[in-house]
Write a protein that binds this DNA or RNA. Structure first.
Lengths: 358, 358
DNA sequence: ATGAAAGCGCTAACAT
DNA sequence: ATGTTAGCGCTTTCAT
């Protein structure tokens, strides 16, 4: 229930700018309304809501109770004009088509809300780059920018940090710059995939890569190849893909087929699902009997019985928590703000060992 | 590239509040910076950016060019304090787990950006209701609230409208109140489903309903039953479901099985996919040979070959466009702001006619 | 058409 | 601990 009562301006209140006056008697309360009611100054109202401020507990209690009763809450917009902190975090992301990103956004915005922030969404149209959104962000006094699964140029990263705003990369790193970032251990995930393939009797391992220009994909590829070398196995085949989409995965499987792999590691789950589709429907082969498949992300659908996809599980909740925690790291801090979370292998049917199924 | 140069305050500028002074020489430009540079007043800068304002074309051109060159853009936050219009729209939604909602959010935020708005996300935790978010919204001076696939009490709707803010329901209606809303024609969709089942030789039609308390589901059910009656067919069975999830669909199919339906209409695609899963994996029946299936929403996965789900397609782009258009309907307008978009049937393999497959 | 000045609601330095 | 006051950056009368 909103309480928004009409209050006549007290005598000592300056004549309001009529153009700005609400056209309606029903108004949202201001600090002045509460202050007048209690016979205190507006500063006290402000202090009551600011944990650091020096104010007697009794007064704070009195104010908070009155505020609660009237339904008063400080106007974040006005407050942000003086403090330059808006309690708004810009979240930049591309498409939500990949359920993984949808999950990220959902949990991120929820966690941010828990920490007292709201998320202002900046959706990149296909082909649009993050840098282009910057001028718009600046207009909104956002406290920080969280960039999900997209990259920025280091020049921009610099400009941003200089402008006093925090930039956090989620699921990406900027290799040569100390830009705060939260990732899962992509290399480790790829290594787990190799080891699991080998342990379950696979010999001809292929890799369906994602977008070449993303750090995520580069790391997954690096880990996969490195581990292959360590265990003394050769890469059977590899294909690149422009979009990391279901269709890309589908096509990737078809392109890998001539190399006759008995196991394919896809750079993400959505591609893996497309790959399974192609393997079963178009190549007329069986998963896992003929080709074992591992994905990456552990999206909800990977667990659906139809797919039962073995995949690499990034600890999303912890990653999101890290990202939010990074928001409150003080500016000059020397601690490393490039956080990497370990991943785990989730074994499902798409990698049933040879011995059992064959 | 951000241009944020250090500008020394001109002599006539009052001593700034030191607490608010940037701790860095590199600053974001204010209207004053541009004004001083051009030797005009800040009012003129403001007017240059306001299409309605009276300003000579020459002056506007001069200012806009300078602004462009310097990278100045008006601060939305400061501006919203005077105008009470923030160019921010609150988007309230529950979980993004259902890909349909992810699609809605993506297109909605994109369309809003196109219209000069940004979306401030309010994510409802499970069990949390929209009304509870209101006090938070008020803090942000949002211009409007778009509520996606969730409902509000009519009391709150009233309070909101009275507070001078626009409320728009997306994919829901409030039956007894003229709250602006954008929906697809749920009844028509359900009718199309019945007709298609009948036309393809099905006789025992069942319905897997969604959440009882949503207008969307109520309308789909109403349409389904009404059309069944019109064509003289009886409902074979019906089950309710609490969450509209994949698992709900799975369970629904199992519960409907004893009634031996040869066709099931699911209240949405995600449930339908779960249903297909249960039918094939657990009941060991075939889709569409034994049971035909129709969903609702036309999520991307419905088109994947594994499922190839016949479904009802809501014209999402047009719905989103309608929602954004509603933002600019003037307050006192008498035009009906409850918009309903027609849907279409997308025929895929899950409803292959009996004659062909049987 | 333009400038001066007041004010949006809140915060913080300063004074008591 | 509390009140007073001067801003935050922009918009909008009001006067010219």
């Amino acid at each position: 229930m909103v309480i928004a009562i009409g209050i006549t301006h007290s005598a000592n209140h300056r004549k309001p700018n009529m153009a700005n006056a609400p056209r309606d008697a029903t108004r949202i309360l201001r600090a002045r309304d509460v202050a007048d009611l209690l016979g205190v100054s507006t500063s006290m109202i402000s202090r009551a809501f600011n944990p650091q401020a020096s104010i007697s507990p009794a007064m704070r209690k009195r104010i908070m109770e009155a505020a609660e009763a009237l339904g008063y809450r400080p106007n974040v917009i006005a407050s942000s004009l003086s403090t330059r902190r808006s309690k708004i975090v810009a979240v930049i992301l591309g498409t939500l088509e990949n359920p993984f990103y949808a999950q990220v956004l959902e949990r991120l915005s929820r966690e941010l809300q828990g920490a007292g922030y709201q998320s202002l969404l900046f959706n990149l149209a296909p082909g649009q780059d993050v840098d282009s959104q910057l001028p718009y962000l600046l207009q909104y006094n956002v406290d920080a920018v969280i960039i999900v699964s997209a990259s920025i140029s280091s020049g921009i990263a610099n400009d941003w940090t200089n402008s006093g705003r925090k930039v956090i990369l989620f699921n990406r790193t900027l290799p040569n710059m100390p830009v705060p970032s939260v990732c899962c251990d992509n290399q480790q995930g790829a290594r787990l995939a190799v080891d699991h393939f080998v342990a379950t009797g696979r010999e001809r391992l292929a890799f369906a890569a994602g977008r070449r220009d993303t750090s995520t994909n580069a790391e997954r590829e690096l880990g996969f190849l490195a581990r292959l070398a360590e265990v003394g196995t050769k890469l059977a085949a590899k294909v690149d893909n422009p979009h990391c989409s279901f269709r890309d995965g589908y096509n990737a499987a078809l392109k890998l087929a001539p190399a006759q792999p008995d196991a394919i590691f896809f750079a993400n789950d959505v591609m893996a699902l497309g790959g399974v589709e192609a393997i079963e429907k178009e190549l007329k082969l069986r998963v896992p009997e003929d080709i074992a498949v591992i994905g990456f992300d552990d999206i909800p659908m990977a667990a659906w019985p139809t797919y039962s996809l073995t995949t690499i599980h990034p600890p999303l909740d912890e990653m999101v928590a890290s990202a939010v925690k990074l928001l409150s790291v003080p500016e000059g801090s020397t601690e490393d703000t490039r956080i990497i979370h370990p991943v785990t292998l989730v074994v499902r049917d798409s990698t049933q060992p040879r011995e059992i199924t064959g």
